[in-house]
Every structure is written in C-alpha cells, then in structure tokens.
C-alpha cells in the first residue's frame, strides 16, 4: 500500500519536473496575485494633494464664502478665529514665535505648503465627519483659514490653478534630517564631575500614578474621568451661583425601551455616540439628564427634525444626520428615540 503510493508520487514528480513546472525559480515568483485596479477605483480613493498641485480637484473658492462654512463645521473646536477652543488645535497666529521659549506652531506660522491644508481638511476634517465636505467647501474653507493667517486676501479666488503658487511664510524653515548630530564617547571612568552635578526632580501632581502610589496627588487616569471631573467642577460652579441641586446621571435599562428605540441603539453607537457619549464638540451627553431636560420639552418630533436636518443652538453644531448622509431617515429617527428614551 505504502510502497505503491510512493511510486505514484515520484512518477508525478518526474513528469512535472520534465514539464518545467517546479524547477524554475523565476516561475515560482511569478505570483500573479491581485486584480488590476481600474481607473474608476483609483479615482475614488486617490485623494492626496502634493505641493506641486498634483491631485487638486478642478474648482475654486474664497474666504468670503468660506467664513460661514468654517463657522458651521469648524469653529466649535478650532474657535471662530482659529484660536482653538479648550485643548483643540489652534489654527492661526504664532508668527515669529518659532524660536521663542513657547513656540506656537500653526498653519500660518509653521506649515510649509498650502497644499497640505487642502489635503488635510479634505482627508480628516471635520474631525467627526471626515471626507464629508465637497470640493467647493474645501476650497472655501482652505481659503478662509489662509485668510485668517494673513496669507491671502478675503476675495482671492483660490483654485486648482493657483494653490501651488501660494508661498507660505515658513516654507524655507525646514531641512532634511542631519542626524546623528551628537557624538558621545563611551567613557567608563571619571566621565562627569560629581561636584558640579545638579539634580532636578519631577513635578508632583501631573502624572496619573494612583495605580501604584496610594493617596498620591494624581490627576485623572482616563479622558472620561477627566471630562467628568471638569463637568462636575463646572456643575458645582453653576450650582453655587443658582443654588440648583446637582443630580447624578443614572444609566437606563434598555429593556424598558420601545422596539424602535432598541433598534436605534446600533445606529447611535455607529454614528452618534462619537459626539453624544463623550460630549464632544458641545454635544449633550446621553448620560447627562440635565443636558436633556430642556431639549425634551421641545417634543420628540422637533428633536428628530433637528437630528435629520442639522441644528445649531448655543451648545454647538449638530451636523445633519450626525454628518452621515448615508443613513436612512428611519435609522436616524430610531437613534433619536434611543437617546430620548434613555432619559426616561
């Protein structure tokens, strides 16, 4: 049995070697794996722009039109003047500070090429809805950010033809890596003078070390704790002014919800939670009953309309469908019901 199988195998082997199937190394690496990428497939994904203008879509825009678009989509995080809200990035100012003690690196003071701004806004902003702006909006907003940095005039028509010619103030401020830039001999004895050595200790109270030093003066260990801390300080401050009692948010059992609301949870997690779970961009947190009590008084229908069409109140900017135009009206409606019923 065994013997005959072996015989058959070597017979096949001899036959295939004779046919050149196994022995050729070149043939072995002719993988022929993968499919041709069509021009259409490439066009959909090829979003990159280069300083020489390669990749810019045909079109144009200006700061006058960009102002409103910027305020709607960007100002909630980056500030009306690009000054940056809270810890969000600053987009303007800082000229002449690069060699200061505390340099301020912004589009205007640091970025070498305008193409990078167009490219980055299109690929990554607004933070919560990347690739949601059309080319016209990206040209307008790019022009507006350049205008805020005194790089172009407010009526300058920025286009695929002239963007590459814009000279950024710090274009010549960069050079190619020239490390190694230090050389430390491998000294073994008398390498430093103990007489002149000074010791500097770390700052206390800036490192989250609560996990190994009991009772340490340590800051929050997670972003949500940090936000809760900031929120409770803010609530205490407000309460001390108004005398209103602070009510701790309570998590709701999903079993008490309607079928539509339960169905909406998945949409919520996928499309809304990014803002509404953590309170990003001013969004009312679902877990924060106080943030919802006034809103609920408007009635669920209006809340649904605001979620579908977008809404800009005093807290921030709520993009239509949370910036997810691909969602059906029903999915968004159910997500609102999930959010509303989480309050009851």
């Amino acid at each position: 049995m065994f013997k005959s199988r072996k015989l058959t195998f070597s017979a096949t082997l001899v036959a295939s070697v004779a046919a050149g199937v196994i022995s050729s190394a070149a043939y072995a690496q002719d993988y022929n794996i993968g499919a041709p990428a069509s021009a259409q497939e490439i066009a959909g994904w090829d979003i990159d722009i280069r300083p020489d203008g390669m990749g810019l879509p045909v079109g144009s825009g200006n700061a006058l039109d960009g102002e409103e678009t910027y305020e709607v989509f960007c100002a909630s995080c980056h500030g009306v003047f690009g000054e940056g809200e809270g810890r969000w990035p600053v987009l303007t100012g800082g000229e002449g500070t690069l060699s200061d003690d505390r340099p301020v690196k912004t589009v205007g003071s640091y970025w070498p090429y305008a193409s990078t701004l167009f490219d980055y806004i299109r690929r990554a902003m607004p933070f919560t809805a990347p690739l949601s702006l059309d080319d016209q909006q990206v040209y307008d907003i790019t022009a507006y950010v350049l205008y805020m940095n005194d790089i172009i005039e407010d009526d300058f028509e920025l286009s695929h033809e002239n963007l590459a010619q814009i000279k950024m103030p710090n274009e010549d401020g960069f050079y190619i890596d020239d490390r190694p830039d230090v050389s430390n001999p491998r000294c073994m004895v008398d390498c430093a003078d103990p007489e002149t050595m000074m010791l500097q200790s770390s700052l206390a109270g800036v490192t989250p070390i609560g996990h190994f030093v009991e009772g340490a003066d340590a800051p929050a260990a997670s972003h949500s704790d940090q936000h809760d801390l900031e929120a409770s300080k803010e609530a205490e401050r407000k309460a001390s002014i108004t005398g209103v009692e602070i009510v701790a948010p309570v998590a709701k059992e999903t079993s008490a919800m309607s079928a539509a609301a339960i169905a909406g949870e998945a949409t919520y997690q996928a499309a809304c939670g990014v803002c509404h779970t953590n309170g990003l961009a001013g969004a009312p947190k679902v877990s924060d009953a106080n943030a919802w009590s006034e809103r609920l008084k408007q009635g669920t229908d209006l809340l649904i309309t605001h979620a579908l069409e977008g809404y800009s109140g005093s807290a921030g900017y709520m993009p239509a469908k949370g910036g997810r135009a691909d969602l059906s009206d029903e999915a968004v409606t159910n997500a609102v019901l999930f959010m509303v019923e989480s309050q009851q």
């Binding site: 690069l98 690196k105 589009v107 640091y110 970025w111 070498p112 990078t116 190619i176």
Partner: peptide, 15 residues
C-alpha cells in the same frame, strides 16, 4: 510637516 518635524532652537525644523 505640522507634526513629526523637529523644531530646533533657531526656529528651523528638521523634516
């Protein structure tokens, strides 16, 4: 450019 470039004391940066 904006990130992952190394700003030197003289205000110029390595890329």
């Amino acid at each position: 450019t904006s990130k992952y470039t190394d700003l030197m004391a003289d205000g110029r940066a390595r890329r």
